[in-house]
Design a protein around this nucleic acid. Structure first.
Lengths: 247, 247
DNA sequence: ACCTGAACACCGTTCAAGT
DNA sequence: ACCTGAACACCGTTCAAGT
């Protein structure tokens, strides 16, 4: 029997949902990248393949290679595109206005909003191989690194103080946001089974009495307040860096 | 210091090319997992396939499925195995001896040693989907979470203080170690091309004058001292948590 | 100018069959 | 009891060919 067609149909339905647009604009890099971001947001990173991404755009996979050198490059573009979203966030300043503390507060919250808007894509921001030592995740965009360093410089930070602040700021954001986002069910694909965790947990926890006793506390979500408090702490440390270097 | 070497010396010389060992022991889960760890250490995560891992062990890929349910499960086992290495680190205590500060200091340094021993595998520890909200990376092992919480409890921490300390400790470690390890060239596979970064950087940096001016400072590696200082800061914060909760 | 068919060299995974 | 051959449904990527 000729039953080879069910595969194609099923895929197209699940993944695309939309039929190819009736009028096909020529396809360009930006459209591909933003389709990739939406795909990851919806189906998770493991589900993203060149072939499926092509299908979403109403095109064969091979067409993408005219605009994107390959999958790795596409993922780098996804990372940069996500961070660049902050450009349209009016609460984030490109240059300090009410002091560096306000400037860094806004930047930190902007990155956090981006992370929470793309929980399935954010681990990518964190773990892609770095192109240069000055592009520390999650601030993986020269534009924002420049804004950070220039901003602090203009506020009177010495070179060393600005760089130290940059290091402390990025590792603070990375740790907090990666954990916050991963608790939202980060990396998993769409096809994951719901296992019988009820039984499994109760059983496997008995050798770990303290974890068991504290499991209620551990399950509570305090990420928002913890973020604010840790950010406050960080700004205090940064203030010390500044005064040390000017002393 | 105690990282590789002690695992298996019997056979399985590094990668393929070797004929199957003349006497073939039956293959077991632990041998597979530790071969996977060594493979990632050497060739990077992207290079690891079931087929290649089989080849390393002198066996076809299909044989692995008798001992490991699949690739995902294998990666989880890799993560746990890496963290479990701390059990053989004599500088890490399972229970506080000279106070909780010493206890946490030793634990933090233990995790850092593990991360630096496996720079290519550590991003996996950071970004695998969490199995439970209480298993926060990078402490992805119930044994160590139990040790942490029980240790602080026994030192007089309230439940809430112990859990808060756990949260702060993990996000501190995650941020610092992921960045430290990624600056060692984390995620990349073995086949990567050496691009012409000399030209590329000098050219593309001109729109970013502050980055360019500070590129010298940015390239300096202060990760060790920064780790120590931030850890000290963290312990101060934890001390506050403790005293607040007992007040 | 833009897209595709067909092909290549890989994947993970299953299962009946070999020893 | 342990391993494998063959097969299936996928991958990323190239390139000559179609429109």
């Amino acid at each position: 029997m000729a039953n080879d067609e069910d595969v194609v149909d099923a895929d197209a339905d699940v993944v695309a949902g939309q039929p190819p647009p009736s009028v096909r604009q020529p396809l360009d890099r930006e459209r591909i990248v933003s389709a990739a971001v939406r795909f990851i947001d919806e189906y998770g990173l493991p589900g993203l393949s060149m072939r499926r991404l092509g299908a979403v755009l109403g095109v064969e996979a091979m067409s993408l290679y005219r605009y994107v050198p390959g999958r790795e490059n596409l993922l780098d573009a996804v990372v940069e595109s996500i961070i660049e979203e902050m450009r349209h966030d009016d609460d984030v300043l490109e240059v300090p206005r009410d002091g560096w503390q306000d400037f860094l507060q806004r930047l930190a919250h902007g990155v956090r909003r981006v992370a929470l808007a793309h929980p399935k894509a954010f681990p990518l921001v964190a773990s892609r191989p770095p192109e240069a030592p000055w592009l520390r995740p999650p601030l993986r965009s020269l534009k924002w690194v420049e804004a950070f360093l220039d901003g602090l410089s203009s506020e009177g930070f010495s070179d060393n103080a600005a760089v130290s602040a940059y290091r402390a700021f990025t590792s603070f954001l990375l740790g907090h946001l990666l954990l916050e986002v991963s608790s939202l069910g980060a990396d998993v694909g769409p096809l994951d089974v719901i296992d019988d965790q009820e039984d499994a947990n109760d059983k496997s926890l008995s050798p770990y009495p303290t974890v068991q006793r504290l499991s209620g506390n551990l399950a509570e979500d305090h990420s928002a307040v913890e973020f604010e408090e840790s950010l406050e702490e960080l700004l205090n440390r940064v203030a010390l860096m500044q005064s040390e270097s000017s002393a």
